[in-house]
Structure formats: C-alpha cells, structure tokens
Design a protein around this nucleic acid. Structure first.
Lengths: 201, 201
DNA sequence: CAATTTAATTGCGAAATAGTACAAAAATAA
DNA sequence: TTATTTTTGTACTATTTCGCAATTAAATTG
C-alpha cells in the first residue's frame, strides 16, 4: 500500500541522500569553512530549497551531527551484541570504526562528531552536549559488554571494567585524531588490535 | 649589553604577547570562524600591522599551532625527566596536560593542535604533518621514559612498552576531546590517575 | 634641524556570504 | 480546464571579510 502523492509540486531531492551529501561537505571542511554554496553544489539543491528542507546552516550542521552519531553508535552497539569471543568482537568493533573514519571519497576525514563537531563545542552548547552524550552512550555499551563477558567467564573476573572501558573509549578518540591527521588505516588497525590483546588477555 | 635601538619607529606591540592573544582567539573559535577583526581586537593591532608582523591568516594560524605544540611538548618532556616514581611522574604529566587544556580565560578549549588544528588537517597538509609530528615526538618521549623506568627496576620488565606508550598517547587524545566537550577537570584527573594505576601497577 | 627609516592608522574596493522576496514550474483537486 | 498547493529557480540586499594603497606618526642618523 503506497501512500497517495502529496498535494503540490513533488520534491526533486531525496532527503536521506541529500543529508549524506551535506554530511560529506561538513565532514571535509568543518562548519565555518563550509559555505551554503558548497552545500548547494554538493546536493544540487538551490539555497532556498535547502533552507526550506533543513533550516539554516547551523540547523543543518546539528542535524548531520546527530544523524552521524546515531548511525555510528547503533552500528557499534550492534557489533557488541554479537556472540563471539570478546577479543574478536572488539576487533570487529574497531574495524568498523576505522572503516568509518577513513573511507571518505577524497581522504580520511576522521570523526564528524569527535573532530569536526568538537571545535564548535565551545561556542555551541548543543554540540558539546551531543558529544558528551555520545561518549556516555558508547561508554555504557562498552561497559555492559565487558561485564557480560566477565559474567559468562569469557573474561577474567579480575578486570576493572571501569578503567578498561575508559581506555577503550580513549582508543576511539585517539583513532579519530590519528585518522584525520593522515595516519594510514592499517596502522590504526595494528594499534587497536595490539591494545585489545594487551588489555583483555 | 643591550643592543642599540633599530632604525625607524619602534613597534608598539610585544611579539610574544601578541602571539598569546592570537592563540586565544583561534583556540576558542577555530581557524575559519576567526576573523582578522577578532584578532585585531584581541591584540589591539590593526590589520596591516598584523599582516606585516605575522603574514596572512593562514600563516598566523600555522605559527601559533607550532608554537603551542613546541611549548607543550617541551613542558611534557621536562616533566618526564624528573627523578620520581614513574606513576608520580605520569600523574604530574597528565596534571599539566589537563591544566593546559582546561584553563582558558572563558572556558575549557581543549587542545589547540589535537582539536582545533585537526579540523584543518584535511585541507592543509602542513597541519596534518605537524600533528603527526607532535604525536611522534610525545610518543618517543613516553617510550623512552618507560624504557628508562624498566631499566632502573622501577617498572616490571614484563610491560610491553609499545602498547603502553600508545595507550598513554590515546589517553592524551581522549583528554583533549573530553576537555573541549565540557567535561570538568576533576573528572579528567580521576580518569587519568585510575588509568595510570591500572596500566603501570 | 632636516633626512631617513620603520611602524601605525585610515579607509577603500573587490569578493564572498547568508538570507529572502518574488516569479516560474509541476504536481493534484474540482 | 481552472484553481490550488508545494517546490524550484532567479535575483537582490545587506553584511562581512580580506588584503592593500596611501597617509600619518615616531623613532634614529648626520
């Protein structure tokens, strides 16, 4: 059952596709260095259409930030639910993270939230709040994962899950920084896997 | 022996003081959101004077980036040379780092290099190179520090210094992210100290 | 005291930028 | 077919921004 067409002239653009394209521009150049003309070019939408669809530049930025955060968080949370050995799960976890941070069309752009958004956190309270919330969410997921692993006997009881969790989150932040600075993905994978082994074995 | 005054009209500004003021502006707002008028207001120098002294906006930014990196790196390197117990030295190390990242005049701005500079790394090769170089330098200093500690018997031989080093660097990056996102300094200190204990004991 | 040198100040001009008013286009509804 | 609704496209305005040319100011040198 397809819903009947809406009243007026149909939209030319696809909302999700447009948001992907907007994301790319902000991801590469950051908030302030991105002009609406660049966004317009990337989406093939004229500025008035952009405004009608997504609000002003600030609103657009907040939208893609939260969207990126939600997608990444949920991907990572799903990986943590897989029924494999903890080290394998964490390897997949960081593999996906690194893939996300390094596979832009032109270059590695790192993390849209932890790198690009972060700069605005000082002047835009909402961005700061989002970042803290994303951290909290990933942190909670990781801690539950580790506690589950200990409960099931897959991980030694002696592990301090709080410290372990914050070190894994630190690893995420570090990968974000290094990815955008141009460190090659294989290096990042190496680092992550060695850290996982050292921390969990 | 004071060197004789130079030929023409004397400069009104003090170069180092001006660079401090320029640093503050970029640190708070990032590169693109900073206008030369803001820099002009912060330094009480008119734009032509700024241009004569520091070149254009991009050159100014590169100057304060490298200056910040050099100052911080050298401070941290010095702390690592102190003849105390490894855990105490590392506590001081992170205490200084957190102090640097959180004690701006208005707010916590995090790291000028790892947060503010990082955004430009994609479009400005030099910034990316600087960041990689700073990471390398701190990493080397930390690794030597750990190797020294093991040699002197202050740290168990079993430690994998490479992994340990990259986890400590990750902790730095994480503190940079969290500081700018608005996490309060005491939380950061807590996290750092617990991580140090867990990693070194 | 002139002449010279260097720095500071004023203010202009060209370009970029964000936002929006208004007209044209493309669909549905009657 | 005509009216209505919604999106798209054009074009304008006000503002910001950068870089620089020309002028004024403050020092040293002879």
């Amino acid at each position: 059952m397809k819903k009947s067409n809406p009243r007026g002239r149909p939209k030319r653009y696809d909302r999700e596709k447009a948001l992907d394209q907007i994301t790319q521009v902000f991801w590469e150049h950051g908030f302030a260095a991105t002009s609406l003309d660049m966004v317009s070019a990337a989406t093939s939408m004229k500025r008035p259409s952009l405004y009608a669809a997504f609000g002003d530049k600030r609103a657009m930025f907040l939208t893609v930030q939260t969207r990126f955060a939600e997608n990444l968080s949920s991907d990572l949370a799903n990986i943590l639910m897989r029924p494999h050995a903890p080290t394998d799960v964490l390897k997949d976890f960081f593999k996906h993270l690194i893939e996300t941070y390094t596979s832009g069309p032109n270059a590695p752009y790192g993390c849209l939230v932890f790198s690009v958004g972060l700069v605005e956190a000082v002047t835009e309270t909402e961005v700061g709040a989002l970042i803290r919330q994303v951290n909290q969410s990933i942190e909670n997921d990781l801690r539950s994962f580790l506690e589950r692993a200990i409960k099931s006997g897959a991980l030694p009881k002696a592990k301090d899950t709080d410290v372990l969790t914050s070190l894994l989150v630190a690893l995420i932040h570090s990968i974000a920084v290094r990815a955008r600075s141009g460190v090659k993905p294989s290096s990042l994978t190496d680092m992550a896997e060695r850290a996982i082994h050292s921390l969990l074995i």
